[in-house]
């Protein structure tokens, strides 16, 4: 597959995630849109890793480009940690404010 199509797909997915973060007011859905953006970047990293691998293979190096896939692995690790802490914060916030609407979270401003 041409790399163009993968770049286009990842950009579209990322922008859908951005629109979700900007338009929705529910904290959980905003969190899910962040996961969507992370996954778009992961897909692009894997596609670029295969592209790099193809270029390296012409020069006779078979294992070139596996760094990209390991980065995706580490991104997944960090995302899992982030989700566990973030959801704990959301539950805590619901316990205090009795809502997950982020419009109620402007108390730091006053």
């Amino acid at each position: 597959m041409p790399i163009n199509l993968y770049i286009l797909l990842a950009v579209v997915l990322f922008c859908i995630g951005v629109v979700g973060v900007l338009t929705r007011r529910n904290a959980i859905i905003i969190f899910m849109c962040i996961e969507l953006m992370l996954n778009a970047v992961n897909l692009l990293l894997v596609a670029f890793s295969k592209m790099h691998n193809y270029a390296m293979m012409k020069e006779g190096i078979a294992t070139g480009g596996s760094d990209g896939q390991l980065f995706v692995f580490f991104i997944m690790v960090v995302a899992a940690a982030e989700v566990s802490v973030g959801l704990a914060i959301i539950v805590m916030m619901y316990r205090n404010v009795h809502s997950v609407d982020i419009n109620f979270l402007n108390r730091l401003k006053h």
């Binding site: 790399i3 163009n4 596609a47 592209m51 193809y54 078979a62």
Partner: peptide, 13 residues
């Protein structure tokens, strides 16, 4: 990268 490709079947990385 008009000609660049992400190869699908080749390579076992």
């Amino acid at each position: 990268a008009e000609k660049q490709k992400a190869v699908v079947n080749v390579g076992d990385i």
